[in-house]
C-alpha cells in the first residue's frame, strides 16, 4: 500500500511536469470508475465520452496544484463530477431533456453496458435502474452514484462534492427514497408481477 502510494506520487510528479505517459499510467486504474460517473451523470454514451475527455484534460492540467490534500482518487472524482455538472448546466440551457424525451430519440440505456448471462441483475432491471437514476435530480444523483455505485464514504463524498457531510447524508437519504418511488412506478423491477 505504501509502495503504491509512493508510486502514485512519483507518477503524479512526473505527470505534473507534462509527462503524458506518466499521466496515463496514473489514471488507468481510475478510468472505468470515472467513466461510470460520467455515464450515470450525463445519461448517455456520447456526452459521457465528452465529459470523460474533458475531465481527464482538467485533471492533467491541474496536476501541479494537487498537493496531496486528499486522496488522488477523491480529487479525480471531484473534477469529473464538476465536469459533468457543467455539462448538465449547459444542456439545461439548451433544452430540458427528460428520460421520455431521450427514449423518444431512440436512446437505449441498456446499450451502454453489456449484461452477461449470469449477471446479478437482468437487462430489464438494468434498463429500469439506469432510467431511474437518470431521472433523479442532479444533487441526489451525484450523491447516490458515489455512495451506492462507488462505495465512497460520506467523508470522501463530501470532499468530492465540496459540501458538508450532513448535506451528503440528506441527499443520499432522499435519493434512495426517490429511487424507490421511481422504481415502484416501473413494474417488474422488484418482480412484483411474479
Amino acid at each position: 500500500m505504501q509502495t503504491n502510494i509512493t508510486d502514485e506520487m512519483l507518477l503524479i510528479n512526473k505527470a505534473a511536469k507534462g509527462d503524458s505517459w506518466a499521466f496515463e499510467q496514473l489514471v488507468n486504474k481510475y478510468e472505468a470508475r470515472l467513466y461510470s460517473v460520467a455515464l450515470r451523470m450525463c445519461g448517455n454514451r456520447e456526452d459521457a465520452q465528452d465529459c470523460l475527455q474533458d475531465a481527464m484534460l482538467r485533471i492533467y492540467r491541474s496536476l501541479d496544484r494537487f498537493k496531496g490534500q486528499s486522496a488522488f482518487s477523491t480529487w479525480a472524482y471531484r473534477i469529473t463530477m464538476n465536469t459533468c455538472l457543467d455539462e448538465l448546466r449547459r444542456r439545461r440551457s439548451r433544452a430540458a431533456t427528460s428520460l421520455d424525451a431521450l427514449l423518444e430519440t431512440g436512446w437505449d440505456p441498456a446499450a451502454e453496458t453489456v449484461t452477461p448471462e449470469d449477471a446479478a441483475i437482468s437487462a430489464e432491471q438494468r434498463r429500469e435502474l439506469e432510467a431511474a437514476i437518470a431521472d433523479l435530480p442532479e444533487d441526489m444523483r451525484s450523491a447516490i452514484i458515489l455512495r451506492e455505485m462507488h462505495d465512497m464514504t460520506y467523508e470522501e463524498i463530501s470532499e468530492a462534492l465540496d459540501t458538508n457531510i450532513g448535506t451528503v447524508k440528506s441527499r443520499i437519504s432522499r435519493g434512495r427514497e426517490r429511487l424507490r418511488q421511481l422504481i415502484n412506478g416501473r413494474p417488474g423491477l422488484f418482480g412484483d408481477d411474479e
Binding site: S36, L52, L57, T113
Partner: peptide
C-alpha cells in the same frame, strides 16, 4: 436497490473510442 446499484457498473468497460479520445487529447 442498494444491491443493484452496487452491481450496475461493477464490470463496466470503457468504450475503446472514449479511451482513445481522452488519451489522444492528453
Amino acid at each position: 436497490i442498494h444491491a443493484m446499484l452496487g452491481e450496475l457498473d461493477r464490470d463496466i468497460a470503457v468504450p475503446e473510442e472514449a479511451s482513445r479520445a481522452w488519451r489522444a487529447a492528453v
